[in-house]
Simulated assay, not measured.
Amino acid sequence: MKPPLLMGIAGRSGMGKTTLIERLIPALSALGKTVSTIKHAHHGFDLDRPGKDSFRHREAGAREIMLATGSRWALMHEQQSTQEEPDIDSLVGRMEPVDIILVEGFGARLPIALEVWRREVGKPPLWPERPAVRAVALGDACDALADLPPALVTFRLSDVGEIASWVVDNARSAVRRAAGE
């Protein structure tokens, strides 16, 4: 199977990245694509909790702990405290093959990204400092369309079908450019 198409979903906290991803997954599925996601968690975030069996296994020195039920499984891999965060390629390599992986939170490390930006949140956009941002999904109340550089493709956040089509077309183009085609 071909490597998956990667698309970064970028934006500052509170912009609506997760909400857009929730809406993009079924829209991409409707286009016949299988979809997975990678979400960068904040440094203080931990799935494991003191007192849980998995926590006790980890504290005893287990390198990996797998939690499994009849409906899902999760693998926790204990990193050495001195190791850097894993790169995107190593994370993708651990996943089942799919057509597209939406990546939230690693945007600066991807060749192409779509930014979610809502002026009403009051935070500046990322696109001026991130060349990977090729498109911006704006809050529906945003009047900033005229303020954006013409090189950026713009969408309303509610135009999920159009965004999904753009993701498929542009993630594919980024893969071809990376492969030198």
Results as ranks from 00 to 15, higher is better:
Thr69Ile: 01
Ile112Trp: 03
Arg118His: 09
Pro131Ile: 15
Asp87Cys: 12
Arg119Lys: 14
Glu84Gly: 10
Thr82Ser: 13
Pro131Val: 14
Gly107Glu: 05
Trp127Ala: 02
Glu129Ala: 10
Glu96Val: 13
Ala74Asp: 03
Arg56Phe: 06
Ile112Asp: 00
Lys123Thr: 08
Gly61Asn: 07
Asp87His: 13
Glu64Thr: 10
Gly61Ala: 03
Ser90Asn: 13
Ile65His: 05
Leu91Lys: 03
Asp143Ala: 11
Arg94Phe: 08
Gly93Trp: 00
Lys123Ile: 12
Arg63Asp: 09
Arg58Ser: 03
Phe55Trp: 07
Gln79Glu: 13
Pro131Thr: 15
Leu75Pro: 04
Arg119Trp: 13
Gly139Ile: 03
Ala132Cys: 13
Ala151Cys: 13
Ala132Pro: 03
Glu78His: 02
Leu145Met: 15
Val116Ala: 05
Pro97Trp: 03
Arg119Leu: 11
Ala60Arg: 07
Ala144Asp: 15
Met66Val: 14
Met66Thr: 12
Ile65Pro: 04
Glu84Ile: 12
Ala135Phe: 02
Phe55Glu: 00
Arg94Leu: 10
Leu114Val: 09
Ile100Asp: 01
Pro128Arg: 15
Pro86Ser: 07
Val136Lys: 01
Pro128Leu: 13
Gln79Trp: 08
Arg118Trp: 04
Pro125Lys: 03
Ile101Asp: 02
Val98Leu: 04
Ala74Phe: 00
Arg49Ser: 11
Asp53Arg: 06
Pro50Cys: 05
Leu102Pro: 00
Glu78Leu: 05
Cys142Leu: 10
Ile112Met: 07
Lys52Trp: 00
Leu145Ile: 15
Met66Lys: 12
Met95Val: 02
Leu138Gly: 02
Glu96Thr: 09
Gly51Met: 01
Ala62Asn: 08
Leu102Tyr: 02
Arg109Pro: 06
Met95Cys: 07
Lys52Ser: 00
Cys142Phe: 07
Leu152Thr: 05
Trp73Thr: 07
Leu138Cys: 07
Glu84Ser: 12
Val98Phe: 00
Asp140Thr: 08
Arg118Ile: 06
Leu114Asn: 01
Leu47Asn: 08
Pro128Ser: 14
Gly122Ile: 08
Glu96Ala: 08
Ser71Glu: 15
Val153Asn: 08
Ser54Met: 04
Pro97Ser: 13
Met76Gly: 10
Val98Thr: 02
Gln79Gly: 10
Glu78Pro: 02
Ser90Phe: 01
Leu91Arg: 04
Ile65Arg: 02
Glu64Lys: 14
Phe106Gly: 01
Pro86Trp: 01
Glu129Thr: 12
Pro97Lys: 14
Gln79Leu: 12
Gly93Lys: 01
Arg134Phe: 12
Met95His: 03
Gln83Arg: 11
Glu129Ser: 10
Leu102Ile: 09
Val103Asp: 09
Asp140Leu: 11
Pro50Thr: 03
Ser71Arg: 11
Ala108Trp: 15
Val133His: 07
Gly107His: 05
Ala135Trp: 00
Pro111Val: 15
Gly122Lys: 06
Trp127Asn: 04
His77Ile: 04
Val116Lys: 01
Ala62Glu: 09
Gly93Asn: 06
Trp73Asp: 10
Gly61Thr: 08
Ile112Asn: 01
Leu126Thr: 05
Glu59Thr: 08
Leu110Glu: 08
Arg109Trp: 14
Gly51Lys: 00
Val121Ala: 06
Ala141Asp: 14
Ala141Phe: 08
Pro149Val: 13
Ala113Trp: 02
Leu138Ala: 07
Ala108Tyr: 11
Leu138Met: 13
Trp117Met: 03
Val103Asn: 04
